[in-house]
Amino acid sequence: MWLLSVLPAMVRVYLCGIRVLFYQLFNRSFTLPVLPKQNGRVAIVTGGVRGMGFETARHLANLGMHVVIAGNEEEEGLAAVRKIHEEGNEGKAEFVFMDLASLKSVRQFVQKFKNRGLPLHVLVNNAGIMLVPQRKTEDGFESHFGINYLSHFLLTNLLLDVMKKSGEQGCCSRIINMASATHYGATLNMDDLQSRKSYSAHGAYAQSKVAIVLFTYYLQEQLTAGGFPVMASAVDPGMVDTALYDRLCGPAQIAKKPVAKLLFRTPAEGASTAVYAAAASEMEGVGGCYLYNGKRMQSADITYKADVQADLWRRSCALVGLKEA
């Protein structure tokens, strides 16, 4: 019974991956255009100590932004900041501790940030885990759902007031949520969001990513309805050669190294669409979209269902202790 419950999710996720690899085989990685300077603007990048998160933080700092790297590995975080500063970037980088496995830590991070009185123009919700064994966060959530989605849901909502004040018409604040092609193969079980009835690492990861896309679209609807100068987009980086893929199973793990060298994007290439969404003039006033390889794409059909978006939002508010807007 356990194998039957796991196999469909695993197959769906790997089929999504194969489709992405075929695309990357025949299509060049998105090349960033010349981006306008971002002097005076402030960004937060979660998981910015390595991989795509680091490349995103690095590029935004190079454009002149003050970048706050949020993560739970202080030594690596401080090393990332030193590296960015040593490159002589025009902006500023700093590391601030935040553990996405703890809602208390998320709240403490937000309070510390707000106490400084800084504006916030860009929030890149990049951090995540993939295909880890079944475990719970400090608050009792399934780890993929809790870390990849719920903590970023809380973080975004707690920072929205600052972002609304920081943006202005013609120069909106921007929220970039890191999605994944695995969301196309996800099933969203509203009665078992914590994957307690039947756990599959592949299914749990895919579910966390479809939740992120649903959240992005519903959030944008709210922002647009309120006339707020904040835009939210979901970004799919493609398959990128980072440590996230170290937990692939069996033959996929064996094939990973040669396939990654040939077909995977580099972390810098994987970060390019997130940087584009955060800083490109062409993205001014554009939100509620799914971006892949620098282009707007259709996401999974379920992500456009308004009732599903609203239901997930209500449940998420209850889980993290937020009042519905």
Rank of each mutant, 00 (worst) to 15 (best):
W2S: 15
L3R: 09
L4S: 14
P8A: 03
L15T: 13
L21T: 14
F26P: 01
F26W: 04
P33F: 06
G40Y: 08
V42C: 07
T46H: 05
G48A: 05
E55I: 10
R58S: 13
L63I: 01
E86C: 09
G91H: 06
K104W: 07
K104V: 06
S105W: 01
S105M: 09
R107H: 08
K114E: 15
R116S: 10
P119I: 11
L123Y: 11
N125Y: 02
T137N: 05
D139K: 04
S143R: 01
T156R: 02
L158Q: 05
D161G: 12
K164I: 15
K165A: 15
C172T: 12
S173T: 12
I176W: 01
T182G: 10
T182V: 15
G185S: 11
L188G: 11
Q194T: 06
Q194K: 11
R196D: 14
Y199S: 10
Y199E: 04
G203Q: 07
S208T: 09
V210S: 12
Y217A: 06
Q220T: 11
T224C: 15
G227A: 10
P229V: 09
A234M: 11
V235F: 08
D241V: 11
Y245L: 04
K257R: 13
R265N: 04
S272H: 13
S272M: 11
V275K: 02
A280K: 00
G285H: 13
V286D: 04
R296W: 07
D301T: 06
Y304D: 04
Q309L: 12
L319P: 09
